[in-house]
């Protein structure tokens, strides 16, 4: 709420809402007080598309430790995927 730590990544992806899969073209990443997860601060990933950035939003709150764990596991998965494609 108060850190104003915010980064935006332009991405190509899809997100699943309650109704359907939708195109996603950006992810805002915040480090701030969370709305729900029980942590003093959290990494919030806010995925959306610029056609309707407000109503397309899909968000996720992670403790900082969980965010680091996910980064690590993504890199492991990408590395394994890269070796498959060779």
């Amino acid at each position: 709420m108060c850190t104003m730590i915010a980064e935006r990544a332009s991405i190509q992806g899809s997100g699943k809402t309650e109704k359907a899969w939708i195109s996603i073209d950006s992810c805002d990443i915040y480090y701030d007080h969370p709305d729900h997860v029980d942590s003093e601060h959290a990494i919030t990933l806010s995925f959306s598309n610029q056609i309707d950035p407000i109503n397309s939003r899909i968000s996720l709150e992670l403790t900082p430790e969980s965010a680091k764990e996910i980064i690590t596991k993504i890199q492991v998965a990408l590395s394994k995927g890269d070796s498959l494609e060779r």
């Binding site: 104003m4 915010a6 935006r8 805002d28 915040y30 709305d35 806010s46 959306s48 950035p53 407000i54 109503n55 939003r57 968000s59």
Partner: peptide
């Protein structure tokens, strides 16, 4: 002025623009 949606979604859009 920033849009019409659920309060937290509108707020996220505002935050993405720096408030």
């Amino acid at each position: 002025r920033e849009g019409n949606g659920s309060p937290d979604d509108v707020a996220a859009e505002v935050r993405s623009k720096g408030g």
